[in-house]
């Protein structure tokens, strides 16, 4: 189909909205100070913490979200559709609201917080939990999409060959799903790495403990703009790497 030519105008404007800000950022970078800025103690500590917590929360997403995706894609019970919609909640909820929700669930006065008797808020574990909260839907949705696309025909064949459910899962389903798992993991990691609102509401901003890279950028923005821009550039580079690695399967999975 040939598109009406007029359609190109808003389409290009839309593309500009996405890409121009990044160029604006690049324009502002103090290239001479860049190496020193991204290797400062505060920056390295924030980067390290971000990498560790994002990796941890991605692992938690995989261990909990993987089985959740299987249940959503392969089982059939009343309320399944409601469950599927609820999983998307963190995608549409403002992250800061998610952070507050976590705080009032697990804080000193939260009912689960009292029940467990552990102090979770303002710890590194809280960072991981906040990131898991916002990143989980990305993994679940892309994995569920991959499971649906794959269908159940190979599993059915494996069962007629005498393979029990765990054998089928281990030797057929998961190997066939590896590309989907890979892109889901990359997406979840990217989302966890960029997480800001839920983290600051639930975990605060303590250097070395809960101050991840996005929080560090927000803080530096007031004292040293060049440092904030340099660290932003770091996140942009990581994001682009993630997009290149995860495309196109992950994006198709989100449709």
């Amino acid at each position: 189909m040939t598109l009406p030519r007029l359609l190109w105008v808003p389409a290009l404007l839309g593309f500009a909205v996405i890409v121009l800000p990044v160029i604006g950022l690049l324009d502002r970078v103090e290239w001479a100070r860049l190496p020193a800025l991204v290797t400062s103690d505060a920056a390295l500590s924030a980067l390290g913490l971000s990498m560790q917590t994002a990796a941890m929360s991605t692992l938690v997403c995989l261990l909990l979200g993987g089985p959740l995706a299987f249940v959503l894609a392969r089982s059939d019970f009343r309320g399944l559709r409601v469950l599927r919609s609820l999983v998307l909640l963190p995608l549409v909820l403002p992250p800061v609201v998610g952070g507050l929700a976590l705080l009032y669930l697990l804080g000193r006065n939260g009912f689960l917080g009292q029940l467990l008797g552990v102090q979770l808020p303002y710890t590194t574990a809280a960072v991981v939990l906040a990131q898991t909260f916002v990143a989980m839907p990305f993994l679940v949705v892309s994995l569920e999409g991959a499971l649906r696309t794959a269908g159940e025909r190979y599993e059915a064949v494996a069962a007629t060959l005498g393979a029990g459910r765990w054998t089928v899962l281990r030797r057929v389903t998961i190997p066939l799903l590896l590309p989907g798992i890979g892109s889901g993991v990359v997406l979840a990691f990217a989302r966890a790495l960029g997480e800001f609102g839920a983290t600051i509401a639930f975990a605060g901003s303590l250097q070395g403990t809960t101050r991840t890279l996005p929080l560090e950028i927000y803080l530096q923005r007031e004292s040293d703009v060049d440092a904030a821009v340099a660290l932003s550039l770091l996140l942009v580079v990581i994001a682009i790497v993630v997009i290149v690695v995860a495309r196109p399967r992950a994006v198709e999975g989100l449709r």
Binding site: R153, Y154, V157, T160, A163, G164, R165
Partner: peptide, 16 residues
């Protein structure tokens, strides 16, 4: 299915 001892050859080979 896996305890039935019943094999299935489909239209498509469906090799893993």
């Amino acid at each position: 299915p896996h305890r039935r001892g019943i094999g299935l050859l489909a239209q498509e080979p469906l090799l893993f």
